[in-house]
């Protein structure tokens, strides 16, 4: 069952890659990259159980979950604003905010 899951995950990743190649818009490609990273997380975890060292693999997968999310949001931010927030819209610091 575990082997079948791994094969299905690999097939699904191939389908996500197909969408990333075909596009047509940049958002389709970001969507494909996000779906790909979710499947990578599942693949790493399942692979850990297959080789019998799940304790180590699950840590890597946990990190990949968080990094994948941040990468998606960062790429979206760049595609929408053209930067990561360095110039222009500066957010208010706590000192400037009204006290609650």
């Amino acid at each position: 069952m575990l082997t079948l899951t791994l094969l299905v995950l690999l097939g699904s990743m191939a389908l996500a890659l197909l969408r990333a190649v075909k596009g047509p818009t940049v958002y389709d490609r970001i969507l494909a990259a996000n779906a790909f990273s979710t499947k990578t997380v599942l693949l790493i975890t399942a692979l850990g159980f297959l080789v019998g060292e799940a304790e180590y693999y699950v840590d890597i997968a946990l990190m990949y979950t968080l990094v994948g999310f941040i990468a998606t949001v960062a790429v979206l931010k760049v595609s929408e604003f053209g930067n990561l927030g360095q110039s222009g819209a500066v957010r208010s610091t706590p000192a400037e905010r009204p006290n609650k």
Partner: peptide, 15 residues
């Protein structure tokens, strides 16, 4: 695992 695999595959086909 079977349910998860099937739905992962269907989701990818949908993409």
């Amino acid at each position: 695992l079977l349910v998860g695999s099937v739905f992962t595959l269907i989701g990818s086909i949908g993409i």
